[in-house]
Simulated assay, not measured.
Amino acid sequence: MTSMLIPDFQPYKGAHCETVATGSLLKAIGIDLSEPMLFGLGEGLSFVFLNLATLPLPFIGGRVQPFDLTTALCQNLGVVCHATETSSRTKAWINLEKTIHGRVPVGLQLDAYYLDYFSNPFHFAGHFVAVYGIDSDSVWVVDTTQQGTTHQVARRRIEEARFARGPMAARARSWTITRSDQMMDLPAAIRKAIRSNAAAYLTPAFKGASHLGIRKLSTSLPKWLQISRAPDQDLAQTALLMEKAGTGGSLFRNFYRDFLIESLGHLDQGKELVDRAAEQFGASAHNWAKVAELIQVAGEERKVEPLREASIICKEIAELEVAAMRLLAHL
């Protein structure tokens, strides 16, 4: 098979994998929004705390579950998301090949561990890329700017990544996006997304979600030196993922702050509420960066004091974010 790269394809450049992947697909149909706007319209702001037997420390995530962001984003914009899953490697490849040859980019959910361009590979099956090219042995993908944006990846690696099992894994999920006749105007979409995200945050689905999850993290943190078998490595990895990969750190709070600030230019009512909430999420982002820094120090020095300090800050973050979301719920 000769190589097929979608003509005139322009990758979306950004810091978060799902907004980059879905942003690339939206850009291909003429919708080019800022990354904070994509995140906010996707109702992406949340938190999750999970104790998983497969991980050395609890998993913490600062956003909604994988693909929920894309689903909400497409619904709020009024575009059509065509998502499929399969347990067949043959079917998954044929579908991918057929769609790319139809000059339509494809989003994939996969495990980042198998992507050989990651300098520090780690298992995370909630990773996303966009595909814009293919041949019999390779796939051309779009990833975050931290990972170099575009790469040619061996087919074998892509298939391993798509069919990996573990927490957050999907059955080789792929999706495409098309326009519809019922595109929503941006101000209406923004207002709906803000209210929906606030409602979800304030009524967590389980005790490890949203502000309840942040409080569980606060309780857990002082115990991390006892839980971990290799504190210097495990705590450093957690801090790195929080700040660089955005799993639970300041990235998503900064996104949401910037989304709210950008939204002010599209709203005719409730601007004071949104402005106050933006300030609070800015403060939350600053605090999350401090928490990551303290976790890093605790691992390096093997001291519990930084974890206790981080625990106190997490309680403050939970209160701050609840206050901000209560404001936004009245928009």
Rank of each mutant, 00 (worst) to 15 (best):
M1H: 13
T2W: 15
L5N: 15
D8K: 15
F9D: 11
F9W: 09
Q10M: 14
Y12I: 10
K13Y: 04
K13L: 11
G14R: 05
A15P: 00
C17E: 06
T19A: 02
A21L: 04
S24G: 05
S24Q: 09
L25A: 13
L26K: 11
G30P: 01
S34Y: 03
L38R: 03
L38T: 01
G44E: 07
F47I: 08
L52C: 01
T54Q: 14
L57D: 00
P58H: 05
I60E: 15
G61Q: 07
G61K: 07
G61L: 07
R63S: 12
R63Q: 09
P66V: 05
F67N: 05
D68C: 12
L69G: 07
G78A: 08
V80A: 14
E85K: 15
S88W: 02
S88V: 03
T90V: 05
N95A: 13
I100T: 03
G102Q: 14
R103T: 00
P105M: 03
V106C: 02
G107N: 02
L108N: 04
A112R: 10
A112N: 01
Y113F: 14
Y114N: 11
D116K: 03
F118Y: 03
P121G: 04
F124M: 01
G126F: 11
H127M: 04
F128N: 02
V129T: 09
A130L: 12
I134C: 03
D135P: 10
S138R: 08
W140L: 02
V141N: 06
V142K: 01
T144S: 09
T144P: 12
T144Y: 02
R156L: 08
I158C: 05
E159M: 14
E159P: 00
R165Q: 13
P167G: 10
P167K: 11
A169G: 03
S174P: 03
T176S: 07
R179I: 02
D181N: 13
M183D: 04
A189K: 09
K192W: 11
A193K: 04
A193R: 03
R195G: 11
L202Y: 01
T203R: 15
A205C: 08
S210M: 11
K216F: 06
T219W: 09
S220Y: 09
L225C: 07
R229F: 12
D232P: 00
L235R: 05
A236Y: 05
T238S: 12
A245S: 13
T247W: 13
G249I: 06
L251T: 10
L251M: 15
Y256Q: 03
E262A: 15
E262D: 15
L264F: 09
D268H: 14
D268E: 15
Q269V: 13
A278W: 13
S284D: 13
S284R: 01
H286V: 11
A292V: 04
I295P: 07
G299D: 05
G299E: 04
K303Y: 07
P306W: 15
I313H: 04
I317F: 05
A318H: 01
E319S: 03
L327M: 14
A329C: 07
L331F: 15
